[in-house]
Design a protein around this nucleic acid. Structure first.
Lengths: 180, 180
DNA sequence: AGGTGCAGTGCAACCAGTTGCATAGATAGC
DNA sequence: GCTATCTATGCAACTGGTTGCACTGCACCT
């Protein structure tokens, strides 16, 4: 149940509407906790009712009205509580492993293609993260506090994609050799 | 919706009861697709109704009766269909990233401890996987077909845990330096 | 004699996340 | 002039996974 907390973290950085939060998730926290606008809207409403956030409606011309949410005292308290509460480490969950394990039941070539597709996707994500690192953290040595934390999160994303790509390469190589 | 397929893959390797499958998941496919016995029982029943698997009840003395499931023709067909169908690459979803990102709102020290806890857990998993590799695949160079695929899946688990531990070390190191 | 753990199945309630759709005005491209 | 995309919010239905509990009987340890 960490979407609440992911949103709260995002709101401490700056207030925003559901839509804006969804955009933000697409390009930052979402790397570690993806969420659709649907989910975000629902959770925001729930948190509003619980008093964790407050909203103010803002009329815009030419655009639909929006509700800008900001974190409330109760939300801040919940966030610090959650930060201090130990949580079980996440588990890996990737269907590609299952496919690979079952590859010999069907056509190995077709699974190989799937691994190649996934490799491409993960390589793309890796590139995106590297780009962000270059642009936003050109000198990581001098970072402190919140900036440092943000940098380290990004590093996690980079490492994860990197290692995934390396695994795909190992798999592709091994499957090709086995087939020839 | 890959639990169905994970179970089917497991059943092609050998038939088994819900309980046995749950045990198997704990120590093999579960590395890429964890599942509780509850879920497995429900999915087995659903697949039974759909004709993807068949079961035979086996009376045991001293122990409760069990239902041994084996894959049916329709299940095999579904499995090959699924193997050939492209799937979206999995996304990372780890609350630790969210915590790290929000660390400066609460006590950074407490988040640091959490990272250390997670590191320990992932290091343990890594050790377990390495142990399996040593025991079951002492000579990876000579592997082919299904054994090779199983080995490669294990490699994925090893790499993922390895890279997670390395990230934790980077984080721990950086947070300690920032605090001193 | 009592507690823990294993083998075995299962129900019921719940929580979290996904998908498809609806609405509506502005802007941008063909 | 038409279509697509962006901003902005939201309902409804569904799927997948988690948690807590219940029942049985054996084996093992203290």
């Amino acid at each position: 149940m960490a979407l609440e907390h992911a949103i709260l973290v995002s709101l401490t950085e700056r207030a925003g509407s559901g839509y804006e939060l969804a955009r933000r998730f697409d390009r930052s926290i979402g790397y570690f906790w993806p969420a659709t606008h649907q989910q975000i809207y629902r959770v925001l409403r729930r948190m509003d009712e619980a008093g964790w956030v407050r909203h103010t409606e803002i009329a815009q011309d030419g655009r639909p009205d929006k509700k800008v949410y900001r974190i409330a005292a109760a939300g801040r308290a919940e966030l610090t509580r959650w930060l201090a509460a130990p949580e079980d480490p996440a588990v890996l969950r990737d269907g590609l492993g299952v496919k690979l394990r079952g590859a010999s039941i069907g056509d190995v070539g077709v699974v190989l293609e799937e691994v190649e597709r996934h490799r491409a996707e993960h390589a793309m994500r890796h590139e995106v993260y590297r780009g962000i690192q270059k642009r936003d953290f050109p000198k990581p040595a001098g970072l402190h506090g919140r900036d440092l934390h943000q940098y380290l999160v990004l590093r996690g994303g980079i490492r994860a994609e990197e290692s995934f790509v390396a695994w795909c390469d190992e798999v592709i190589d091994a499957l090709r050799k086995d087939r020839s």
